[in-house]
Design a protein around this nucleic acid. Structure first.
Lengths: 322, 322
DNA sequence: TTGTAAGCGTTATCAT
DNA sequence: ATGATAACGCTTACAA
């Protein structure tokens, strides 16, 4: 049913109908109420598409987020998405659009969606660059946006986690608990974490190439066992890697944390479910998602830039270290 | 840049531009190519919104999926979403829209999006009913859709997993490996699983109230230990529950699978990472997502109903049982 | 093969 | 407070 049909049916002009559904147009409260009820009854609701075309772009909030891994998804961004989805107010249309960093086309089509007016506000999650393109596009189209990412990268309109600081805490913890020989299992975007861990531990740190996914964690354990057998503490760049590492240790019968202490990073839900539960640098993905929503709402109100916000990270000591 | 501006710039009419970007309109291959290149250069791309309004609704494919749990997300649907996202052809706009089954408004706004023409095709994931509303709405609006769900529920246009059959396999496995006293830890939508497990095991099955999330699994273990101490095999309605159960067992020093054998359901990625790795009824969520995409594509071509498809489930015996 | 013009369902700007 | 009407950017007969 279109606005025209409905207007006829209700015995008013289409302009009046439009106002009944629009924000604070000049219309009597009585008519508005009557029309809304009528619409409910006959099943009319205004078309978002037409609305978008006609100018008002208060339609949809999207979360752009990267699909990082080829075969095994890292749940980190999923958990950010959870936080965003839950915090989104009931009356907002909300959609997630994944972009694949391997597909050039994928980022482009995200930009098209912004340019197009189908997006009234965007939350842009990223690791390692790509977000800038989307943010620029949003800027150009005067669409409020919020970036979610690592501390080093963005100055304003961002919700940031300080992974470097977190890794620092992990390194220092190992140092303080008397560990002597440290290793760091690398991930995909981990420059900050690596540096922080080094700084925190203070001594020499062996770097093991990890990568994307559980199996790389297992492999990292094997490498350490063979090439650096006296390693007694390890930080992994993310929790999935840490789970793999622990699996390797369990299979080899190496006791954790007694013989080797392990700390992961991110704090995805399953790291708490693992046996032993995985000590980790919590980036609080869920909280980050929530914070992004409330920052976006602030940007909706006052159409200006807002200062970035840091969601502090915590070192969670669970069973894989002490 | 609008079509008008671009048309002027390229020295043709807007109709010609439209045809250059449309499917197989009557236009010379030469002009089409020239215009496409020109557009690339000056940064013009047609507006999806306007396109949608003007009639062609080949815009966006969405995946509607439920957020089931209040506090702890179950990754099952996330993994289906992964499969869908990966299988989606490069040139299709793809979006996820979560609906919260606790929020009445949430399903309604999904319907509005369908009614609206912003959706050209839908994949509807569901457990426990709500999908029917969305499917009806899609039907009414002549939008191709595919439902993803449990075998019992839908007849056509669906990709189905046969959880009952899977649970049957699990029950039979326990029976065949000489287990005597079985328990089933319930989830949120598990009628089929429960029945299948009973049928497969053949003997008496104690039912323990599980619920939503890891902690409920731990609690289920405690209940069994106290009230049914001679239980020697357990099926949990989902893997998150199973992880919790194993955590309880580990904490209590009960050896798995020697003393008690455990099988979960779903086959989320992390169940393979657990220590011990979790035996499970694999519903192959990733594959299910892929299958949904290819079914939707078939529906795009021939605009008719297509027969449902069952993605067979497998019993994966890992370390938590033998 | 290309151009002209009438929609598509809204919002926004004038009038009234 | 309400009603006419011109956009919005595109698709699609119909005409040339």
């Amino acid at each position: 049913m279109t606005i025209k049909e409905f207007a006829e049916l209700a015995g008013v002009s289409i302009a009046t109908v439009s106002r009944a559904f629009g924000g604070a147009g000049r219309i009597s409260e009585r008519t508005r109420k009557r029309l809304r009820e009528e619409a409910e009854k006959v099943g009319y609701s205004p078309s978002f598409v037409a609305r978008g075309l006609a100018g008002r772009r208060d339609t949809t909030v999207v979360l752009f987020y990267p699909e990082l891994y080829l075969h095994e998804p890292d749940p980190f961004f999923s958990e950010i998405a959870q936080g965003v989805a839950r915090a989104m107010p009931e009356n907002q249309l909300f959609q997630l659009v994944p972009y694949f960093i391997q597909r050039e086309r994928s980022v482009i089509s995200c930009c098209e969606q912004i340019r197009d007016g189908r997006v009234s506000g965007a939350i842009i999650a990223a690791e390692g660059g790509r977000a800038a393109d989307l943010a620029n596009e949003a800027e150009r189209n005067r669409i409020p946006y919020v970036i979610v990412g690592e501390l080093t990268e963005f100055t304003a309109n961002s919700v940031l986690y300080d992974a470097e600081q977190g890794a620092f805490l992990a390194g220092r913890h190992f140092r303080n608990t008397g560990r002597k020989r440290a290793a760091f299992v690398t991930g995909l975007h981990d420059a900050g974490k690596r540096a922080g861990f080094r700084r925190g531990f203070g001594g020499e740190v062996v770097e093991i190439e990890g990568g994307a996914g559980h199996s790389y964690g297992i492999r990292a354990f094997e490498i350490i066992r063979r090439q650096f057998p006296d390693t007694d503490c390890v930080m992994c760049a993310n929790d999935v890697l840490a789970a793999g590492f622990l699996r390797g240790a369990a299979a080899a019968g190496v006791p954790v944390p007694d013989r080797i202490s392990v700390i992961g990073c991110d704090d995805i839900a399953s790291s708490g479910f693992h046996v032993p539960s995985i000590s980790t640098v919590s980036l609080h993905p869920y909280r980050v998602g929530e914070a992004a929503v409330s920052m976006l709402e602030r940007r909706f109100r006052c159409r200006t830039d807002v200062p970035s916000e840091i969601v502090p990270c915590d070192l969670l000591i669970r069973e894989s270290s002490f």
